[in-house]
Amino acid sequence: MNLGWKLAATVRGHAPDGLLDTYTDERRPLGAQALDWTRAQSAVMKPDPHAQAIQAVVRDLIGTRDGATYVFGRTSGSTIRHDLGGDQPLTGRDAPDFRLEDGTRLGELMSDGLGVVLDFTGDRRLRDAALGWAGRVRYAAGPARNDLGLGAVLVRPDGVVAWAGDRDPDREAFERAAARWFGHPAS
């Protein structure tokens, strides 16, 4: 998905400069983490006395809530975070399947490969700004059942949160993020 939407944007002619380069920048660290995790699993499974001691420690750790949570996160991929910059903890993570109060789910809004901006503000603060990326980004607004304390989120076509704004989202920050991932706005 990561590479696919970036290739599609390039073919359609609206990818910003360097978009394809972000694939390597994002995926290489995650590949290195997966390789390290695989090496650790292999070391634990060796039939030697050292591995048996490590197995006992791992069993004890998995028996704890934090240990089980850690192992689940590593094996499921739920703790993956792409380094996209910014301080908002949701940025770079897979987007939750936000559900607007009208029942619309984020996953439904993403079915055609567009990015999505969800504007949870009552005054639809980002509507006019989002129009600049019409055809590349779908705009949806309304309160969400669980907005995680956010005012808006921009989700890339691969489901990764490209930007998240607090209750009072910064329009300029949204526009910078949209331009970074979806190119310049239409004039």
Rank of each mutant, 00 (worst) to 15 (best):
residue 2 N to I: 09
residue 2 N to V: 05
residue 3 L to D: 07
residue 4 G to D: 15
residue 4 G to K: 15
residue 7 L to H: 13
residue 9 A to I: 00
residue 11 V to C: 01
residue 13 G to Q: 09
residue 13 G to P: 06
residue 14 H to Y: 14
residue 15 A to S: 06
residue 16 P to N: 13
residue 17 D to R: 15
residue 18 G to T: 10
residue 21 D to F: 08
residue 21 D to V: 01
residue 24 T to F: 14
residue 25 D to S: 14
residue 26 E to A: 07
residue 29 P to N: 07
residue 29 P to L: 07
residue 31 G to H: 09
residue 33 Q to T: 10
residue 34 A to L: 11
residue 36 D to S: 13
residue 36 D to Y: 09
residue 38 T to H: 07
residue 39 R to W: 11
residue 41 Q to M: 13
residue 41 Q to T: 05
residue 42 S to P: 05
residue 45 M to F: 15
residue 45 M to C: 10
residue 45 M to E: 14
residue 46 K to Y: 08
residue 49 P to K: 09
residue 50 H to A: 15
residue 50 H to I: 11
residue 53 A to N: 11
residue 53 A to H: 11
residue 56 A to E: 12
residue 60 D to K: 06
residue 61 L to T: 07
residue 63 G to I: 00
residue 63 G to N: 03
residue 64 T to L: 01
residue 65 R to L: 10
residue 67 G to F: 00
residue 68 A to V: 01
residue 68 A to C: 07
residue 69 T to S: 10
residue 70 Y to F: 12
residue 73 G to F: 06
residue 76 S to Y: 03
residue 78 S to A: 13
residue 79 T to M: 08
residue 80 I to V: 15
residue 81 R to C: 01
residue 81 R to V: 04
residue 81 R to K: 15
residue 83 D to M: 03
residue 83 D to G: 06
residue 84 L to F: 06
residue 85 G to K: 12
residue 87 D to C: 07
residue 87 D to Y: 10
residue 88 Q to Y: 08
residue 89 P to C: 10
residue 90 L to W: 13
residue 90 L to A: 15
residue 92 G to D: 09
residue 93 R to L: 11
residue 93 R to N: 10
residue 96 P to Q: 09
residue 97 D to S: 12
residue 97 D to G: 10
residue 101 E to R: 14
residue 102 D to K: 10
residue 103 G to Y: 06
residue 104 T to A: 08
residue 106 L to N: 02
residue 107 G to H: 09
residue 107 G to F: 11
residue 107 G to A: 14
residue 109 L to P: 06
residue 110 M to C: 03
residue 111 S to T: 13
residue 114 L to V: 11
residue 115 G to M: 03
residue 116 V to W: 01
residue 118 L to I: 02
residue 120 F to I: 04
residue 123 D to Q: 14
residue 123 D to V: 06
residue 125 R to Q: 11
residue 125 R to Y: 06
residue 129 A to M: 04
residue 132 G to V: 03
residue 132 G to Y: 01
residue 133 W to S: 03
residue 134 A to G: 12
residue 139 Y to F: 13
residue 140 A to C: 07
residue 140 A to Q: 04
residue 141 A to R: 04
residue 144 A to K: 00
residue 147 D to W: 04
residue 148 L to Q: 14
residue 150 L to Q: 07
residue 150 L to P: 00
residue 152 A to T: 02
residue 153 V to A: 08
residue 154 L to S: 02
residue 154 L to W: 00
residue 157 P to W: 01
residue 158 D to C: 09
residue 159 G to T: 02
residue 161 V to R: 00
residue 161 V to F: 00
residue 161 V to C: 11
residue 162 A to Y: 00
residue 163 W to T: 04
residue 164 A to V: 02
residue 164 A to H: 03
residue 165 G to P: 04
residue 166 D to Q: 08
residue 167 R to T: 04
residue 169 P to C: 07
residue 170 D to W: 02
residue 171 R to I: 09
residue 172 E to A: 13
residue 172 E to H: 15
residue 172 E to G: 08
residue 173 A to G: 05
residue 174 F to W: 09
residue 174 F to D: 01
residue 175 E to I: 06
residue 177 A to G: 05
residue 178 A to F: 08
residue 179 A to K: 10
residue 179 A to L: 07
residue 180 R to G: 07
residue 181 W to L: 04
residue 182 F to I: 05
residue 182 F to N: 00
residue 185 P to F: 05
